[in-house]
Amino acid sequence: MFKFFEPNKIFQITSKAPKYVLLLFIIVLSIGLTEALFLSPEDYKQSDAVRIMYVHVPAAWISLGIFSSITFLSIFGFVFKNKNFFLIAKSLAPSGFVFNIIALVTGAIWGKPTWGTWWAWDARITSMLILLLFYAMYLISWRIYETEEKVFKITTFITILGIINVPIIKYSVDWWNTLHQPASINILSKSTIHSSMLYPLLIMTAAFALFSLLIFLMKYNTELIKIKNKGLDRL
């Protein structure tokens, strides 16, 4: 059923892909940065401080997306006893972790000129901090547990617990009174953000997604070579 996911087949693609993804990332990022820093308009209320949105929002979106993917991959890996799903999940985690840090730090930088504070125990910020802790626990588990079976069980358990936090992050602005405004971009209903700001935001999101793909490919290739190194020891 999962023959396509066999490492030997995937490596043919993943070993060659990083250089093309890197090139594409540089092109998209250059366009995104030009749009975000120079071409997009300033906000009538926040003035130029709004430009921080172009790094803060994509970073938050991608860190949430990666954590959700890690959870589903871990559950699939566990249910179908497929080690490769765990490898894919493990390779996705570092970029998700870094994007989570970027979201928190750029959020703090944005908070100072707009809210007058670097940090507040607001529902959205606190739940993002909790997500970072889940990412940290997930990554640490891979380092401290040596037996595969144990690490698969523990990382799956961490992701299942952590995924409960994802809808809390998403709906925290609706459920509680927070400093954050409600979502301006909606898939099912009309977005309240103007296209002159939406397009740069989408370009930056594409650039960030390409970067996480690049890191994933490099990390996944490293993991496969690690396995092959162990294989050479057994010869």
């Binding site: 940065l33 130029d48 790094v55 803060h56 730090v105 750029t106 930088i109 000129p113």
Partner: peptide, 16 residues
Amino acid sequence: SMNGYGSYVLSAFSFT
């Protein structure tokens, strides 16, 4: 300067 917000905007982009 970005209307006085340059240090915030540029530090957020630089950190990223």
